[in-house]
Amino acid sequence: MEARTINETDYAHIPGWGIDADPENDPTYPMKHWTGDDHQRLGWERPPLQPVDVEILKSIEHPRITAVFGTTAPPMGLSGMIRRYAFKYSESHYGHWLPLILADRVGVVEGIIDDLRHGHVPNIFAEKGWKAGWKYNKQGIITKVAVTVAVTAAVVWWLRSKNERRLEA
């Protein structure tokens, strides 16, 4: 990558160039110790590169894959297809984030299917930490369970009545 150095004579044609530059006027200090490296662009000496041996989705705003990355839970299944689609769009775009949120929800269903396939019935009660909830906040858990049961019952009732209506028709 081409490094850019500031050559004052390049700006001789602009009246007053740099006359009011004030290095102290830096709201990022002390967060950032300005070194001028910003103008070297991507010219830093890179660390060794981690070999890419799982599928890594790369932001299209990155010109290259970073030297290290995590390898957990590579994209798979339907959620993986949605994630790959999301990465066609930049981080600046809802076309990126909304499909990722959708993929996360699809991933939850895939997770349950995967559990069942491995003969594991997920203990939702335990996974939600409701044991502790029961100990410290009985009322809260009772409300949560009641709401869950009511919503489930309503959905079941609705589906049933829809079926019946269809049968009647």
């Binding site: 002390p30 967060m31 950032k32 110790h33 300005w34 070194t35 490296d37 910003d38 890179r46 660390p47 890594i56 989705l57 790369k58 932001s59 705003e61 990155h62 894959i65 970073t66 030297a67 290290v68 990355f69 981080e91």
Partner: peptide, 15 residues
């Protein structure tokens, strides 16, 4: 420049 929370060599998925 001390911005260790903003490293550019540790996350390919987002800039």
């Amino acid at each position: 420049q001390g911005l260790f929370g903003n490293c550019h060599e540790s996350n390919p998925q987002a800039t």
